[in-house]
Nucleic acid binder design. Structure first.
Lengths: 95, 95
DNA sequence: TCATAATATTTAGTGTTACTAAGTATTATA
DNA sequence: TATAATACTTAGTAACACTAAATATTATGA
């Protein structure tokens, strides 16, 4: 859900997301490569995102940019409302 | 966490918890036996809860009552604060 | 310039765990 | 007397997070 949310705000590539997740969560959510990339592949397999290799002018090494699809935005909405439902259900039990 | 929380409010047995979880969550959290009992066994293996078979007067069939331990209460505190941390971290990303 | 750090992606392997889908057994109900 | 409800157990599967490493390139500092 968080990965989809980040991609809903604009295309970016894997490694950059890792830094952002770390920074924006103040290190509380420290996602490693081995966690993020399989998530990206799964999201892509399911059609929620697409990727494109992009070669920057000065850099020989290309980056793989990910973009959210329409299907992905719909899925994100579902996930977000599902998340808030869960939070409120848990609140019922925790009082 | 929810199972520990329920047990922190008093001892009870598996099947009764299933009904309570269903009812108190308005059916949103529908836990089946195959989900709950393995959780109970794991909690007991880890020393967070203990169980005792209890034979009621009129019933031949005994029920297995579960009680939370001191270690379990400590774990519950950890889980609850971890949960709220997670909720606030996710909120950062969902804005 | 040469080692090291940083950037960037990939993947094999492990362990946890949630859930499905049964089975077993007793008591209550219609 | 069959069926539903109560109550617990367990085998098996699939998902998935995470560890740990490999591969490769570019930037930096001594």
């Amino acid at each position: 859900m968080i990965v989809l949310k980040i991609l809903s705000e604009g295309k970016t590539y894997g490694y950059e997301m890792l830094g952002r997740i770390d920074k924006e969560s103040n290190g509380l959510l420290h996602m490693k490569e081995g966690t993020l990339y399989p998530i990206l592949y799964r999201l892509e397999d399911d059609g929620y995102i697409v990727s494109r290799w992009k070669e920057l002018e000065q850099r020989a090494k290309p980056k793989k940019y990910y973009m959210i699809t329409g299907k992905g935005r719909k899925k994100l909405e579902e996930l977000v409302s599902g998340w808030y439902n869960m939070v409120s259900v848990v609140d019922v039990f925790l009082k």
